[in-house]
């Protein structure tokens, strides 16, 4: 089996009487797309927050590249090689498309403490940013204001910013959210190729995309992993069908 890049070990998070994450252990291996699905309220967002560093678990550990990062914050985990995309696009709307990817490249360089020379004079940052834009097909939009982009283009830009980080693992929170059939298909094709670069933990509601992309699927319900396996196994799993896909799916 290939190397484990990202893993949660017996993660628990409680909010009062509610156990939002209940003994969750999942792992992401090099070269794979691991999809995380589950109905609304299953605890996906809480789990993502614990993996990305925004929320501390009550028990359990988060491992990134063999390192225990449970106590590390979002910034430290990003530096360690975890790139996330947001369910609701988190982009600097007033800035240009280019400035958004430039921010990613700047984060990857780890050198924001420069106060005098213009960021536009840094050819290395520019090259890195432009490469990411070109890969998602937004190179022609570089000087547009981000607020003017269509919803689909913003989703592409989300992915582009993550690419600039050159990460060791991707954590993607519903990258297909709100995309039309066409956009969804294109992004699916793109992510398909991306797994060779770095594995993707994919939280997604779009079942066509999940079934097309996932090497493995974990199903979350009421905070627990109720099933984990290949696409065929999950499709055949009775508990999953009852909890999530609905009878007859």
């Amino acid at each position: 089996m290939s190397e484990i890049v990202l893993a949660t070990c017996n993660l628990v998070k409680r909010f009062g009487a509610l156990t939002a994450t209940d003994d969750v252990s999942i792992e992401l291996r090099a070269g794979e797309i691991h999809a995380l699905i589950g109905p609304n309220g299953a605890g996906k967002s809480t789990l993502i927050a614990q993996i990305s560093g925004g929320l501390r678990p009550d028990a359990g550990r988060v491992m990134l590249l063999g390192r225990d990062v449970t106590g590390a914050g979002t910034v430290e985990r990003a530096r360690a090689g975890l790139a996330r995309t947001f369910q609701i696009s988190a982009l600097a709307m007033e800035d240009s498309v280019f400035e958004n990817v430039l921010l990613g490249a700047l984060g990857a360089s780890g050198r924001p403490w420069r106060f005098w020379s213009p960021v536009s004079a840094d050819a290395e940052l520019e090259a890195r940013a432009m490469e990411a834009l070109a890969r998602v097909g937004l190179a022609d939009e570089r000087d547009r204001r981000t607020a003017e982009l269509s919803h689909g283009q913003r989703r592409q830009l989300e992915v582009a910013v993550a690419l600039t980080l050159g990460p060791r693992a991707f954590l993607m929170d519903e990258p297909m959210a709100g995309l039309g059939a066409d956009g969804s298909r294109r992004l699916t094709g793109f992510l398909d190729g991306l797994r060779a670069e770095a594995p993707i933990l994919l939280v997604e509601h779009d079942m066509d995309a999940v079934f097309a992309l996932a090497d493995r699927i974990s199903v979350l319900a009421s905070g627990r992993v109720i099933a984990s396996g290949t696409v065929a196994e999950i499709r055949a799993d009775r508990a999953v069908r009852a909890a999530y896909l609905g009878e007859g799916a």
Partner: peptide, 11 residues
């Protein structure tokens, strides 16, 4: 504008 994004790129 988006502190969450800035954190997510490691700043």
């Amino acid at each position: 504008q988006v502190p969450a994004r800035v954190e997510a790129v490691g700043l």
